[in-house]
């Protein structure tokens, strides 16, 4: 009885090319592929879809170097940082204080030299506002109309501490 040699093994293996899937399998394969792609797309989170769209856009601009995931992620982080700075940026206190002093009818902000508004000086009840400018109602309305950002006035006495003579 002859043993199998390399040629016999090779021939037997080549005959395995004739093992084929059921008829119509290859014709239907592409349709099945599209169906799975659609199903997978629907399962993706929104951020991933947005990232892919951004990558497609960058690729259309012929900047394939920017379509890599790390670069795209870095770009998104930079945009998010810029946006957050703009939204949450607090107004500069000194700038607000200066603006308040310059506006007529605004609540005055004491300068360090003004002892009447100095918290370390005489008690509140002894303080004399005197001819200190007071805020008028028209100023309030103007402020609301202009919708200016909130101004946090420093070194001023809270309204509740004002003596009875304080008038609007």
């Amino acid at each position: 009885m002859e043993n199998f040699d390399d040629k016999d093994i090779a021939t037997l293996l080549r005959l395995k090319r004739h093992e084929q899937p059921p008829p119509g399998y290859f014709d239907n394969f592409l349709h099945e592929f599209h169906r799975r792609q659609r199903a997978e797309l629907l399962r993706q989170p929104v951020w991933r879809i947005a990232l892919q769209r951004a990558q497609d856009y960058m690729f259309q601009l012929n900047v394939p170097a920017l379509t890599s995931y790390p670069v795209a992620a870095a770009a998104i982080l930079v945009c998010a940082a810029v946006l957050s700075l703009k939204v949450y940026q607090a107004p500069d206190a000194q700038t607000v204080a200066t603006a308040v002093v310059q506006q007529p009818g605004a609540i005055a902000v004491s300068s360090p030299a003004n002892a009447a508004w100095n918290l370390s000086s005489s008690p509140i009840s002894a303080r004399d506002i005197g001819s200190m400018p007071v805020r008028t109602s028209s100023d309030n309305m103007q402020t609301h109309r202009l919708a200016t950002p909130p101004r946090y006035v420093l070194d001023s006495t809270p309204v509740s501490y004002e003596p009875a003579s304080f008038r609007f």
């Binding site: 002859e2 037997l12 005959l15 093992e19 084929q20």
Partner: peptide, 29 residues
């Protein structure tokens, strides 16, 4: 396993295996 397609009967090597003297005959194939 997939079925062997009928085209195997037209395969030259299949015919050589089953029709010439070799360790393989169609019945054993």
């Amino acid at each position: 396993l997939d079925d062997v397609d009928a085209s195997v009967h037209n395969d030259k090597e299949f015919l050589e295996l089953t029709q010439t003297s070799s360790p393989v005959r169609e019945a054993d194939l």
